[in-house]
């Protein structure tokens, strides 16, 4: 008999997970932030060019034809619909699903804490998240802007420097393809050469990302447009990603359409745009900031583990 029926996480870690979830809930309760649930299966999903959703087939007993439903890569669209409807601050601890992601730091199914705070910008949410981290004895965080950090490590200014220069640097660092777009080059340099060095003495917030990496963040009004987005790194591990959220429905639609155009060019499957989400934005999403936290990675940080399998009962190979 093989041993694969056994959980990968040991009993201590299984218990620790329960404690972490309980602490998150007690923190949220103390701040009067409402816990919500939203669908895991939905008619639409993210158009994000670097995210792949699982598809499932829905056979409705009252309809002749089957329908594709997507497992959600994050609950953000549904939660923003709740915010637009006037719930106030909300959070959710949910399972999210991302196809084509598997490695020491990735399992295709994982646990996400998603939290929205109306009236906050990304800096205020970083502050609030730091208070949550203190529940786990994760000490005071440091902060640096993406631009300063990138320049410190590479000598290049990421918002303005020539894409050809970024390409040359990426090649020097071992990227084996030419003519990549700016965003891919930044992703490569950042994930291979910068991120692994971050947050080793203290957790580090990196904020104000390049415009081409704005995702669902709003753009700043300053002379140099930056995405009002942040990430938290602890011991080189990306733990959380937050936005000062984009609330402009027209701009959101444009970003969706850009994504879909890109998907077409790359012959990636077409995806329906989430009309409910866009309608909610049109109705009016309150100014807010939101953060997504990888709970499994938070557990890895607390336990000092280097493989996500150590904190999962049954990672995909045993699921």
């Amino acid at each position: 008999m093989s041993e694969s029926w056994r959980p990968c996480a040991d009993n201590k870690v299984i218990k620790l997970r329960a404690e972490v979830l309980a602490k998150i809930r007690s923190f949220m309760l103390g701040r009067n932030i409402l816990e919500v649930e939203t669908p895991v299966l939905a008619h639409a999903t993210v158009t994000d060019i670097h995210l792949d959703s699982f598809c499932s087939t829905y056979s409705n007993p009252h309809q002749k034809t089957d329908k594709i439903l997507y497992l959600q890569t994050s609950p953000e669209y549904a939660m923003k619909r709740l915010l637009a409807s006037g719930t106030g601050a909300i959070y959710q601890i949910s399972r999210v699903f991302r196809n084509k992601e598997h490695g020491k730091l990735h399992n295709p199914e994982f646990t996400m804490l998603e939290w929205y705070q109306p009236g906050y910008d990304h800096h205020q949410l970083m502050q609030a998240f730091e208070s949550l981290l203190s529940f786990f004895d994760i000490g005071q965080c440091e902060r640096i802007s993406y631009g300063d950090l990138f320049t410190q490590h590479t000598g290049l200014e990421p918002h303005t420097c020539d894409t050809v220069k970024l390409g040359r640097l990426a090649q020097k660092y071992g990227l084996l393809s030419n003519g990549e777009e700016r965003s891919v080059l930044l992703d490569f340099i950042f994930s291979h050469k910068i991120a692994p060095t971050l947050g080793n003495s203290k957790p580090l917030f990196v904020y104000d990302y390049p415009e081409c990496q704005s995702a669902l963040a709003r753009l700043s009004d300053g002379r140099q447009k930056v995405a009002e987005r942040f990430e938290l790194f602890i011991n080189g591990l990306e733990i959380a990603n937050g936005f000062h959220e984009l609330t402009d429905a027209d701009e959101q639609r444009q970003r969706f359409e850009q994504d879909l155009l890109f998907r077409k060019k790359k012959k990636r499957p077409d995806i329906p745009i989430d009309r409910y989400f866009l309608d909610a934005l049109k109705y009016g999403l309150p100014e807010c900031a939101g953060i997504a936290v990888g709970v499994d990675r938070l557990l890895m940080t607390i336990t000092g583990s280097e493989d996500i399998c150590d904190v999962l009962t049954f990672p995909i190979a045993r699921a």
């Binding site: 084509k100 071992g174 965003s183 992703d187 994930s191």
Partner: peptide, 14 residues
């Protein structure tokens, strides 16, 4: 062979 992917970014095989 290592899978590297920023949350919102391009996936790589290092």
């Amino acid at each position: 062979n290592e899978f590297v992917k920023p949350g919102k970014g391009q996936a790589f095989n290092r």
